[in-house]
Design a protein around this nucleic acid. Structure first.
Length: 111
RNA sequence: AGAGUCGGCUGGGCAGUCGCUGCGCUUCAUCAGCAUGAGGCGUGGAGGAAAGUCCGGGCUUCAGCGGGCGAGGGUGCCAGGUAAUACCUGGGGGGCGUGAGCCCACGGAAAGUGCAACAGAGAGCAGACCGCCUAAGCACUCGCAAGGGUGCCGGUAAGGGUGAAACGGUGCGGUAAGAGCGCACCGCGUCAGUGGCAACACGCGACGGCAUGGCAAACCCCACCUGGAGCAAGGCCAAAUAGGGGAGUCGCAGCCUCCAAAGGGCUGCAGCGCGCGCCCGCGCGUGCUUCCGGGUAGGCCGCUUGAGGCGUGCGGUGACGCACGUCCCAGAGGAAUGACUGUUCACGACAGAACCCGGCUUACAGGCCGGCUCUCCGC
């Protein structure tokens, strides 16, 4: 996702999820595939190196799993715990999030 | 060999698979075309600090004829380098170190105002605590006298002691005891003179008995410099909706704008659009056409060829400059440079471009190279 308006739309109308590392807002976008947006606050991760590393891990995980996701606009934010986690733990947490996202949104679209 | 000091360089490697992004070529699709989208191939893709944002510039824009004065801010030994600096180089002065070398906001304290703990008698035209003296003057007293003693009035910065600092040191003279009080030498200050572009050094000559303690990152004085804002700068294109301006067109009647004309407004009828299947009728809405400029979302430019890198030669003690040759080396935009696996070693620190350069400062696992110094040993 690229436009501020799209981010606002997701924050205003999307569903909220999350775990110890991430916050997730998601909303059906009516397109053929899922789209990703990230909001990594400098307040949580002070060093630019850490913010870049987190973005890369998230983006890579999304790239691998996007074929299995429903057409959603997804905005991921960081929580304080990510600083102490290594790449493997972050990846595992993200995979659980994708699964959760796929199941909940499948049921909500049915209703 | 050990210890030390200064300067420079480097900042994991290799292979495979899957990805991201700039550029070039190319295939396919759409299109009149410009282009857009999806692939393929090739190629480039973080740093020495990209960081802090502390200085200096470029660039953009606003203001300003030009110049002077002032305020505010900054700089502060001298010369040079540079686009420029608060940076760098060379030099001078002071301090530290055996030395290589390191450190210093390093103009002015005989313009003014101000500040200084504790100790100490006294701390800024200083001061009599201990000590030293009793010559002069006064009083008392001893003595035949010469003279002596005590007290008062005092004198004294040589000695002790305090302190970061107490009004220069040594010697001789001098004196009641002392004192630059006098003299000699040393030191200090001022001036002439000499060397140096200068800072500054020397100062054997002359003068001054010494007058001038420290702090100006306290106010201040002096000299010099100095417009503001910053790429979210700034420029271009520009949808929908609402609003603005110009031109053309705008049937009939009444009313209002002093009467009439023109223009404008309101009301009714007509017209036009929409709805009720259609006509009549009713309801709702409404000037119409066209052009222009501002401007939001969005897009494009600015955006990387530059005070550029590398090499060679020449000039210069050096910073650096000049000439020639050669290379093109990130350019994103909710923000690319990554992930996984294998392998290897010394097991990888600090850390991520956001308009661009030159500095400074701060952070940093290690590794490599070179200059120099000291100590010890061997020849």
């Amino acid at each position: 996702m690229r436009r501020p308006a799209e981010f606002k739309q997701v924050y205003a109308a999307g569903k909220r999820l999350g775990n110890e590392f991430f916050t997730v807002n998601a909303q059906a976008n009516g397109l053929t595939g899922a789209r990703l947006g990230m909001s990594i606050a400098a307040r949580i991760l002070r060093r630019a190196v850490d913010r870049n590393r987190l973005r890369r891990v998230i983006r890579e995980s999304f790239r691998v799993h996007q074929v299995n996701l429903p057409p959603l606009d997804i905005v991921i934010g960081a929580r304080a715990g990510v600083l102490s986690a290594d790449n493997a733990r972050l990846r595992a947490a993200l995979e659980k999030l994708w699964q959760k996202l796929a199941s909940t949104c499948a049921t909500s679209s049915a209703s």
